[in-house]
């Protein structure tokens, strides 16, 4: 499998990244080099192996449902690039 420039632009769009033509060409080269190295995995027989999603099985732990003080409203907004006293501000999304 080889990554085309079109593929690079497609995945960049999915990842909400914009790349210059030069960056896209570089990314294409890097990805192809890395992915061709990764093709070694195809030599390993995993036909009877279940995928591992977590390193251990976690027990579902319950805790008492006691309220704790949440992060204050103003603290939650403190790091926003743009906010008013109540909300994060975004550009108008409805035409």
């Amino acid at each position: 499998m080889s990554v085309t420039l079109e593929d690079v632009h497609y995945i960049a769009k999915l990842a909400r990244l914009s790349l210059t033509e030069q960056e896209a060409t570089q990314a294409q080269q890097d990805l192809n080099k890395i992915l061709s190295y990764m093709d070694e995995l195809n030599q390993i027989d995993t036909s009877s192996v279940e995928p591992l999603e977590h390193v251990f099985d976690f027990e579902t732990r319950l805790r008492p449902d006691t309220p704790e003080a949440p992060v204050p409203h103003e603290d939650a907004l403190r790091n926003a690039p743009d906010a008013d006293s109540d909300y994060f501000r975004v550009p108008k999304v409805i035409e």
């Binding site: 195809n42 390993i44 279940e50 995928p51």
Partner: peptide
């Protein structure tokens, strides 16, 4: 993770991880 490559890469890697 993208459509068409998920099983070949991500799924495969999860299996090798178990090995």
């Amino acid at each position: 993770l993208s459509k068409g490559y998920y099983d070949a890469y991500y799924g495969k890697a999860q299996k090798v991880r178990r090995l």
